[in-house]
Amino acid sequence: MIQLFAFYMFATIVILAAVMVILARNPVHSVLWLILAFFNAAGLMVLVGAEFVAVLLVIVYVGAVAVLFLFVVMMLDIDVASMRAGFVRNAPLGFAVALVLLAEMVLGFGAYRAGGLALGTPAAPSQALPGLSNIQNVGALLYTRYVFLFEMAGLILLVAMIGAIVLTHRDRRGSAARQDIARQIGRKPVDATVMTRPKVGEGVEL
């Protein structure tokens, strides 16, 4: 019973939050709604007994959302001061969202303890190994049955990396921003310092 209740709550909030991501006028608010959506999606994952995916969702997307935040703040022309002015006014909304999240966590944990939702019988090849945790099951599949796809996914990341470098890297030889460690180490005191013996009352001429 508690699972069903939790399911409908998570599902409703996921959809509402996703709608708000699109409708919110302030991009920072959109990002906040996005976080709420991700948390609730993670809750759904917990309900079906995929706690590893749930944790992954939170960890990976919190990282991604942090980056998104940076982009929003850096790229878009938002007046941060005027937004900060609204902090007091918006604080009750913020607390409400936090409260919802807290209640959900408690409820989700209870539902998780009560056992997963029965979704149907899994097909034979994806049957979980008994007595092993989620992570061990995923690992056992990832490095045996799907090792080829795993490697190919690695290639995709490599291509993304090459792309980032090809499209942004500039050769900065000769500019001040480039560090030449050998030159730094090879520098002798003689090259950089001058000993002078100025007379009293006269300046130093460099």
Partner: peptide
């Protein structure tokens, strides 16, 4: 379906980079 998607992404990602190669 998984092989399909991974193959598609590997090919598309490199295509995006090639399209803007003359950056």
């Amino acid at each position: 379906l998984m092989t399909l998607y991974i193959g598609l992404e590997l090919s598309s990602l490199s295509s995006y980079i090639l399209a803007s190669f003359a950056r």
